[in-house]
């Protein structure tokens, strides 16, 4: 219990020591269609293979081996997106631990190489742009490999008035991230560490009523100690550590044979952002999702065929400037497939 309280105090101290600045940016906030559809929430509840990206502690809750893949078309037009991303990941449980290994690749397309000009004349500039046209394209891509380890801890809390001690789940996890970015003729490498924890309790254990929800709180510290990206030139960039705090309510709705999940996240990146997600799951088979990520509305849906899950997520561009995001995720529960 004392260790648990120490964790909580540590996390809250971190909340007040982050600074707002523009970090070295990677294209994806989260990697799964489910998370995107829920407004990029998931710090306290994320049952799919992308748990490592929202809160590495959630990896500990996986009880089956899961192989996942994703494709995202980001911004611009659907037929000609500005950014394409792929993700392949596997989660392997080994009780009380779980391990996860993930690879994300993203690349921007149609980045045109245009030389400089030594003139300040507007007429010269106009002529320069007309003459250069498309000389060549700039190769650009990011690779992120993340290895996660998480441990499930169950603390039995004696409230005194019941006949038994109430179990509280307190999983913790760590991520080690290797980042490599290539832009034109320069490359950069960086290593980052994340730490996550969560606290999950089932009110049914306290009330003995099947209609009571599960409540979860999650904390994720990204880039612990900051992440320095050293370019192959003389410069380096820095990403400060960021925090995310989230809470989730998993409310069963017995008359409809379904469950309503309500998620809320707050994140420190840039100047801070709030995220809300709503998920309605019917018979553990069909899910409809809605979310708000800062000012962007997200929607999505998914089906779970026991051994195979497929999800689709869509993010509306808030001001119709940047363009929408489409994401498709497929996951296989290997033990049920084989």
């Amino acid at each position: 219990m004392i260790r648990c309280l120490s964790f909580l105090i540590f996390f809250y101290l971190q909340l007040y020591t982050t600074t707002a600045q523009i970090p070295f940016a990677l294209p994806l906030e989260s990697v799964s269609a489910r998370t995107l559809a829920l407004g990029n929430t998931g710090t306290s509840y994320n049952p799919d293979g992308s748990a490592y990206s929202t809160n590495c502690a959630l990896v500990a809750l996986h009880k089956t081996t899961m192989l996942s893949g994703m494709y995202t078309s980001s911004f611009g037009e659907l037929s000609k997106p500005l950014n394409n991303s792929f993700w392949v990941g596997v989660v392997v449980p080994y009780e009380p631990f779980s391990f996860s290994c993930n690879w994300v690749r993203s690349s921007s397309s149609d980045v045109r190489n245009t030389p400089s000009i030594f003139s300040s004349s507007l007429a010269e500039h106009e002529k320069h742009l007309q003459q250069t046209g498309v000389i060549s394209f700039i190769p650009q891509m990011n690779d992120v490999i993340t290895i996660s380890a998480a441990r499930q801890n169950i603390v039995k809390l004696d409230w005194g008035w019941n006949q038994y001690a109430m179990p509280i789940e307190i999983p913790v996890g760590v991520n080690v991230r290797f980042v490599r970015s290539v832009m034109n003729d320069v490359t950069t490498h960086g290593v980052a560490f994340d730490f996550g924890a969560m606290l999950k309790l089932n009110l049914r254990d306290m009330s003995f009523d099947e209609n009571y929800p599960k409540i979860s709180f999650g904390w994720m510290l990204k880039n612990l100690g900051g992440m320095t990206m050293n370019w192959s030139t003389t410069v380096s960039d820095y990403s400060p550590y960021q925090y995310a705090f989230g809470m989730a309510i998993e409310q069963p709705i017995k008359p409809l044979d379904s469950q309503l999940n309500i998620l809320y996240d707050t994140k420190s990146e840039y100047t801070g952002s709030n995220h809300i997600g709503l998920e309605w799951v019917y018979r553990k088979f069909f899910a409809a999702r809605f979310g708000v990520a800062s000012t962007n509305v997200t929607v999505g849906t998914g089906v779970d065929l026991d051994f195979f899950m497929v999800d689709y997520g869509f993010k509306f561009s808030s001001n119709n400037v940047l363009g929408n995001v489409h994401r498709l995720t497929c996951s296989f529960r290997l033990e049920r497939l084989l």
């Binding site: 600045q21 500005l82 650009q140 960039d237």
Partner: peptide
């Protein structure tokens, strides 16, 4: 530059309207 200082190396998207 931006309100939060200089931007790091990376990809940026511009939109003229």
């Amino acid at each position: 530059s931006s309100d939060l200082g200089q931007v790091p190396n990376g990809v940026y998207y511009y939109y003229l309207t």
